[in-house]
Write a protein that binds this DNA or RNA. Structure first.
Lengths: 117, 117
DNA sequence: TAGGTAGTTAAGGAATTACCTAATTACTCT
DNA sequence: AGAGTAATTAGGTAATTCCTTAACTACCTA
């Protein structure tokens, strides 16, 4: 059950990460929660274009959005990013067994966010 | 040291990983060194298509090829994959500092096979 | 040297992606 | 309600990606 869902997310995550703009957005969100407008202001492309990038990131589970009044605040979902990337590294670098536990811990580290899948 | 170079590779690596076929190729190579033909045999797409995927992976530094006689053998470059992904996780999840050392160790783990860069 | 196998390069077409402008929705404030 | 701001949706186009077939290079064997 979990495995298929995980696979789907992996695909979306790597597709999301394939864009430089989207990786930059994540980097900005790594330092602070930002509104869509604040994010758009940091790029040369149009606001709708940024909005689409944000939608891709959200579909991949890498960010979440919350509307507060007039603004939509975006924030990074650290666990998800760390989990997916670590899972993949594990899959392709099976040698690194020792790391496995460490990275699992990493994923949970930020907080009490549970296993949603 | 080579921050720019790293950035360039990051771009190529994530672009390479955005394709399911390419991620599958890496998964196969995680278990064994394979020739181009052996890899192509595992997919439904044409041989030239696989060849192009392999070129993308090689440009990203994720695999290396060696021609032996009639065959071209491909093999995974584990360190590179682990390094790039871990570097990125670090950049976006600055919380996870503890993992850093572990992952560095991981890169070298496979031993024997040489550092080409 | 001729024929066969392994692999890549070349050329072209279909599908996807990224971007733009314009229109729309949702909220705030007077 | 009406004007202004924030953000997304819609519609259309340019660029890119992925795959195909055909042609080519390199190697092996008889």
């Amino acid at each position: 059950m979990k495995k298929l869902l995980k696979y789907l997310f992996m695909q979306r995550v790597f597709e999301a990460l394939s864009s430089t703009v989207r990786r930059k957005i994540l980097a900005y969100l790594a330092h602070a929660e930002l509104t869509a407008g604040e994010i758009a202001a940091r790029f040369d492309i149009s606001k709708p274009a940024v909005s689409q990038h944000l939608a891709v990131l959200e579909n991949a589970g890498l960010v979440t959005s919350e509307k507060r009044g007039q603004y939509v605040h975006y924030r990074l979902v650290r666990e998800h990013l760390a989990n997916v990337l670590n899972d993949y590294v594990q899959e392709v670098c099976p040698v690194s067994r020792p790391l496995k536990r460490e990275s699992a811990a990493l994923g949970d580290a930020p907080a009490a966010e549970g296993e949603k899948e």
